[in-house]
């Protein structure tokens, strides 16, 4: 699920950036530092949308670096248990398949794949129904439900299922 929230961060800035575009430098450094990171509490930071306010800088003793407390608005993405996501399959093997929904990795184990889909090994490993009408392979797009999340300090990993109503392949690159 996406959230638009305000976060705060202390930015350390090298003295060489001091000058006319101090402010721009702070913002660009903030974007470079923060976007794409993941915190267990808030999820993945997708994008910074604005700066609320930049506080007074504090010069560090000895180094000359300056610390600015920056409040910024950003969009975060945090997967939840029970959430329905659309994801792209990245890898298929005998144990199930892995998929990505943006920055989130999701594993669907083979017992959470419908019973009528069977694993086919080969050059392009895939899960196929007996009549061959539905095929899950690399780069397929699937809709899945998250049934478990593992949230570490810096990463989030999910397991999902496609064994439920309206879940499964939504767009197959092989047929498209």
């Amino acid at each position: 699920m996406f959230f638009h929230i305000v976060m705060e961060r202390n930015m350390q800035l090298h003295p060489r950036h001091f000058g006319r575009n101090l402010r721009e430098n702070i913002v660009s450094k903030l974007m470079k530092d923060v976007e794409g990171t993941c915190s267990g509490r808030h999820g993945f930071v997708v994008a910074i949308t604005g700066i609320e306010n930049i506080g007074k800088g504090l010069i560090r003793d000895g180094t000359g670096f300056v610390t600015f407390p920056v409040k910024y608005q950003c969009v975060v993405f945090r997967p939840f248990k029970g959430e329905i996501l659309e994801a792209v399959v990245t890898m298929v093997n005998k144990m199930g398949f892995f998929a990505e929904a943006g920055p989130v990795q999701i594993f669907v184990s083979n017992h959470l794949i419908p019973d009528d889909m069977e694993f086919q090994s080969g050059d392009m490993p895939n899960y196929t129904t007996s009549d061959g009408s539905v095929k899950i392979q690399k780069d397929s797009e699937v809709r899945l439900k998250i049934i478990g999340t593992r949230v570490d300090a810096t990463e989030i990993f999910c397991i999902g299922t496609i064994k439920d109503d309206f879940l499964g392949v939504i767009n197959d690159p092989a047929t498209a």
Partner: peptide
């Protein structure tokens, strides 16, 4: 539904869940 698959190592008996996949 909602069951997290568990994996087990036959050699050392260590257990993993699908979250470790």
């Amino acid at each position: 539904k909602n069951t997290v698959q568990e994996y087990i190592c036959p050699n050392c008996g260590k257990r993993y869940t699908a979250l470790d996949a």
